[in-house]
Simulated assay, not measured.
Amino acid sequence: MNPDLELDLDLACHINVLVPDVEPRALGAALGTLAELGYRRAVLPPLDPETTDAAELRALFSESGLAPITIAGQAPGADVSSDDPDEAAAGVAMLRAAVDLTVALGGDQMNGVPYGLFSHPTAPVPERRRDRSAAAVGRVADYAHDRGVSMTFEVLNRYETSMVNTAEQAMDFVERSASDHLRIHLDTFHMAVEEADLGAAIRLALPKLAYLELGQSGRGLLGGGAVDLPGVVGRAIDDGYAGRWGVEAFSRRGLIEPVADALAIWRSPFDDGRVLAEDALRVIRRGWSTSVAGRRAQRLSRGATV
């Protein structure tokens, strides 16, 4: 494998790998680090549109050359899946405000959990709430598309939601949404809990898959854990995935305590975010090198140097 061969993949890294929040000075340095390593995008934590200085953050991204990806969600009293009409309407308004913030930041993608509360479920979601959620999220996805933003929804494991846990359920959710613009976000951390075959799940979601996030079983370095991430990368490329890729990891030492608690990050599996971001690139490159496209690029490179 030629380490100098350009890895032509659209890569994003969650900013919490490097910094706990969006304090401008620390964020600017973190964006510079990611740009230096070769990432094209940085995923921001959920932000409050009313208190976020969008102009300041946009300037930091512009200076770094990276593009932002935002995260949208729901909150008590603002839940698109709620049986209460006012609460459901507040959920829609919250998502539309997140789209508007994405535009203000200069972004063209919004990830997140827009379909209901991020929580620890104790029962299945009733079908009426699933239908209501999908229809509302679909309308917001259409609104986002009209504003130049691609909206995705993340498929989470059973301990964080009972709305959408598998690629099959995600495809069903898109169909229920009646939107031509809603896209799927798969995360290998969650897939390792719910999917019997990660490659098959990715193939199933391919028609609507726009963001494939790589996370290890222990939330730490991508190069160490139970998930065969190089295999996931190589197979996904061979199966035709051409969308954006994400890197996500969390360490309690690098998070604000309430965020760490909400994500159930009780340990610190890594101490240095730059080391993790570099390790992730090696893992992705290793997977890419096993794909047909990667092997071809390496053969061409060797021929060009003869």
Rank of each mutant, 00 (worst) to 15 (best):
P207S: 01
A89M: 04
L204N: 01
E6R: 15
P258Y: 03
D272T: 03
P124C: 08
V275C: 06
D228I: 14
A196S: 13
L37I: 13
P114T: 13
Q109H: 12
V233D: 06
L47C: 05
P269Q: 12
A297S: 07
L263H: 01
L255E: 05
V233P: 03
R139S: 09
L105S: 12
A236L: 02
G116A: 14
R130C: 01
V247H: 13
T102S: 15
V99G: 09
D8T: 12
P24Q: 09
V22S: 09
A260D: 04
R285H: 08
V259N: 02
V19I: 10
A260E: 04
G223Q: 13
S150G: 06
F270E: 03
F153I: 14
R158G: 12
L5M: 07
L276H: 13
A141Q: 08
P126D: 08
A170K: 13
L18P: 09
L263N: 04
D10H: 09
V259T: 14
A297H: 01
T33M: 11
D271Y: 06
G199T: 05
R40N: 10
R176E: 04
A134F: 05
L105K: 12
Y143D: 03
L209N: 09
G223H: 10
E154S: 11
T70C: 10
W245M: 10
G231F: 14
W266N: 15
T152S: 14
L263M: 13
I184V: 15
A277P: 07
